[in-house]
Amino acid sequence: MQKKPYLTLFLSTLQLSAFTFGGGFVIIPLMRKKFVEKLHWIDEQEMLDLTAIAQSSPGAIAVNASILVGYNVAGPLGAAVTVVGTVLPPLVIITVISLFYDAFRDNAVVSMVMAGMQAGVAAVICDVVITMARNVLKPFRWQPLAVMICAFAAAWFFSINVIWIILACGALGAVETLVRARARKERQQ
């Protein structure tokens, strides 16, 4: 290992985070390029594993991936360094925007641009939802479709706290896995 991995870790994640526009998935290929191909700190298979963990853990994917890379390279202190590196660019940028927000919002041109962009963002989210729903329903099964409809109804019509919906669906998945595992064991006996 290098003499000062902390500085390199910090600068790398800072740079990656500053250029991760859009969803968090964008940071994964960038990280792979930096830490696998360029620095050789993490091997190919490990990066895939880390990606899976980052995706399936709560929180932002970019932050999770940074924690994993930092932890992997230099332990908990490495993770702390990469988190700060990842959080700093959005913190600075949004702080600056936030300071000028009122003037920004009252400007006629800005509000026209923002109105247009809001319609655009709504379209982007619809696009994301369509793609995600397709992936979840491929191959088609009734159960995820039913879960999706119920969860949507709970959130949209009944305004149930999303945390309860997520906990309920996670519990359902756990129970289903246990039941299936038991059935498999009985079949084997």
Partner: peptide
């Protein structure tokens, strides 16, 4: 299993 159960719910939340 938990993650598999969560995926449709996550999509529904985002849709809402």
């Amino acid at each position: 299993g938990i993650l598999l159960g969560l995926r449709p719910a996550v999509v529904a939340m985002i849709a809402s």
